[in-house]
Protein backbone atom coordinates (compact mmCIF):
# COMPACT_ATOMS: atom_id res chain seq x y z
CA UNK A 1 0.00 0.00 0.00
CA UNK A 2 1.40 3.30 -1.01
CA UNK A 3 1.89 5.99 1.55
CA UNK A 4 -0.89 8.52 1.83
CA UNK A 5 -0.72 12.27 2.27
CA UNK A 6 -3.05 15.13 2.99
CA UNK A 7 -4.71 16.67 -0.03
CA UNK A 8 -6.84 19.79 0.07
CA UNK A 9 -8.80 21.30 -2.79
CA UNK A 10 -10.09 24.78 -2.01
CA UNK A 11 -12.04 27.14 -4.17
CA UNK A 12 -12.85 30.70 -3.08
CA UNK A 13 -16.36 29.66 -2.18
CA UNK A 14 -15.59 26.60 -0.13
CA UNK A 15 -13.33 23.74 0.83
CA UNK A 16 -14.11 20.91 -1.58
CA UNK A 17 -11.79 18.15 -0.52
CA UNK A 18 -9.72 17.62 2.57
CA UNK A 19 -8.65 14.04 2.97
CA UNK A 20 -5.85 11.51 3.00
CA UNK A 21 -5.05 10.38 -0.53
CA UNK A 22 -2.47 8.22 -2.25
CA UNK A 23 -1.92 10.17 -5.40
CA UNK A 24 -3.21 13.18 -7.24
CA UNK A 25 -2.79 14.04 -10.91
CA UNK A 26 -2.58 17.78 -11.44
CA UNK A 27 -2.72 19.60 -14.78
CA UNK A 28 0.23 21.93 -14.19
CA UNK A 29 1.00 24.82 -16.52
CA UNK A 30 4.20 23.05 -17.49
CA UNK A 31 2.52 19.70 -18.02
CA UNK A 32 0.62 17.13 -16.06
CA UNK A 33 2.19 15.90 -12.89
CA UNK A 34 1.40 13.17 -10.43
CA UNK A 35 1.86 14.03 -6.81
CA UNK A 36 2.51 11.31 -4.27
CA UNK A 37 3.66 11.38 -0.69
CA UNK A 38 7.10 12.89 0.00
CA UNK A 39 7.08 14.99 -3.14
CA UNK A 40 9.71 17.72 -3.26
CA UNK A 41 8.33 21.13 -2.22
CA UNK A 42 6.92 22.59 -5.40
CA UNK A 43 4.73 25.48 -6.32
CA UNK A 44 3.03 25.30 -9.68
CA UNK A 45 0.38 27.08 -11.65
CA UNK A 46 -2.58 25.09 -12.92
CA UNK A 47 -4.23 25.23 -16.28
CA UNK A 48 -7.90 24.39 -16.81
CA UNK A 49 -8.20 20.63 -16.69
CA UNK A 50 -9.18 17.60 -14.73
CA UNK A 51 -7.54 16.57 -11.51
CA UNK A 52 -7.74 12.95 -10.52
CA UNK A 53 -7.66 12.16 -6.84
CA UNK A 54 -6.96 8.57 -5.84
CA UNK A 55 -7.82 8.03 -2.23
CA UNK A 56 -6.56 5.23 -0.04
CA UNK A 57 -9.51 2.92 -0.71
CA UNK A 58 -8.70 2.54 -4.42
CA UNK A 59 -11.37 5.06 -5.14
CA UNK A 60 -10.95 7.69 -7.79
CA UNK A 61 -12.54 11.09 -7.86
CA UNK A 62 -12.27 13.56 -10.67
CA UNK A 63 -12.68 17.30 -10.39
CA UNK A 64 -12.66 19.97 -13.04
CA UNK A 65 -10.61 23.04 -12.19
CA UNK A 66 -10.30 26.31 -14.06
CA UNK A 67 -6.85 27.54 -13.26
CA UNK A 68 -5.24 28.12 -9.91
CA UNK A 69 -2.18 27.10 -7.92
CA UNK A 70 -0.88 24.02 -6.24
CA UNK A 71 1.33 24.19 -3.22
CA UNK A 72 3.06 20.84 -2.80
CA UNK A 73 4.95 19.85 0.31
CA UNK A 74 6.34 16.43 1.29
CA UNK A 75 3.54 15.96 3.83
CA UNK A 76 0.67 17.42 1.86
CA UNK A 77 -0.68 19.22 -1.15
CA UNK A 78 -2.94 22.24 -1.25
CA UNK A 79 -4.67 23.16 -4.45
CA UNK A 80 -6.04 26.69 -4.68
CA UNK A 81 -8.45 26.54 -7.57
CA UNK A 82 -10.04 29.58 -9.10
CA UNK A 83 -13.15 27.51 -9.57
CA UNK A 84 -13.60 23.80 -9.05
CA UNK A 85 -16.44 21.34 -9.46
CA UNK A 86 -16.80 17.61 -9.24
CA UNK A 87 -16.77 16.09 -12.68
CA UNK A 88 -20.32 14.76 -12.21
CA UNK A 89 -21.63 18.21 -11.40
CA UNK A 90 -20.11 20.02 -14.34
CA UNK A 91 -22.51 22.33 -16.04
CA UNK A 92 -22.27 22.10 -19.82
CA UNK A 93 -23.76 25.54 -20.26
CA UNK A 94 -21.27 27.04 -17.88
CA UNK A 95 -18.40 25.47 -19.79
CA UNK A 96 -19.85 26.62 -23.09
CA UNK A 97 -20.15 30.13 -21.68
CA UNK A 98 -16.52 30.11 -20.57
CA UNK A 99 -15.44 28.97 -24.02
CA UNK A 100 -17.54 31.67 -25.60
CA UNK A 101 -15.92 34.26 -23.35
CA UNK A 102 -12.47 32.95 -24.18
CA UNK A 103 -13.29 33.27 -27.90
CA UNK A 104 -14.31 36.85 -27.39
CA UNK A 105 -11.08 37.49 -25.50
CA UNK A 106 -9.14 36.19 -28.50
CA UNK A 107 -11.05 38.52 -30.79
CA UNK A 108 -10.63 41.47 -28.48
CA UNK A 109 -6.90 40.98 -27.92
CA UNK A 110 -5.01 44.12 -28.86
CA UNK A 111 -1.45 42.86 -29.01
CA UNK A 112 0.24 39.57 -29.75
CA UNK A 113 1.10 38.73 -26.18
CA UNK A 114 -2.47 38.93 -24.94
CA UNK A 115 -3.69 37.18 -28.08
CA UNK A 116 -1.33 34.27 -27.56
CA UNK A 117 -2.39 34.02 -23.94
CA UNK A 118 -6.07 34.09 -24.83
CA UNK A 119 -5.64 31.52 -27.58
CA UNK A 120 -3.75 29.25 -25.24
CA UNK A 121 -6.51 29.54 -22.67
CA UNK A 122 -9.14 28.83 -25.29
CA UNK A 123 -7.38 25.71 -26.52
CA UNK A 124 -7.03 24.49 -22.93
CA UNK A 125 -10.74 24.95 -22.44
CA UNK A 126 -11.70 23.16 -25.63
CA UNK A 127 -9.37 20.28 -24.77
CA UNK A 128 -11.02 20.12 -21.40
CA UNK A 129 -14.45 20.06 -22.99
CA UNK A 130 -13.40 17.19 -25.22
CA UNK A 131 -11.97 15.30 -22.26
CA UNK A 132 -14.96 15.42 -19.97
CA UNK A 133 -17.91 15.49 -22.31
CA UNK A 134 -18.41 12.33 -24.30
CA UNK A 135 -19.07 13.37 -27.87
Amino acid sequence: MAQSFKFELVSPERLLVSEEVVQVVIPGTEGEMTVMANHAPTMTGIKPGVITVSSAADKQDRYVVFGGFADILPEGCTLLAESAVHVDDIDREDLARRIQEAREDVDDAKDDVTRTKAEEFLSQLTTLEGAILPA
Binding site: E30, P41, M43, G45, F69
Partner: peptide, 11 residues
Protein backbone atom coordinates in the same frame (compact mmCIF):
# COMPACT_ATOMS: atom_id res chain seq x y z
CA UNK B 1 14.22 24.50 -1.31
CA UNK B 2 10.95 25.30 -3.04
CA UNK B 3 10.71 24.49 -6.72
CA UNK B 4 8.68 26.78 -8.90
CA UNK B 5 6.91 25.93 -12.11
CA UNK B 6 7.22 28.27 -13.99
CA UNK B 7 9.46 30.64 -11.96
CA UNK B 8 8.65 32.38 -8.72
CA UNK B 9 8.27 35.83 -10.25
CA UNK B 10 5.62 34.79 -12.74
CA UNK B 11 3.73 32.85 -10.13
Amino acid sequence: AYEYEPDAASI
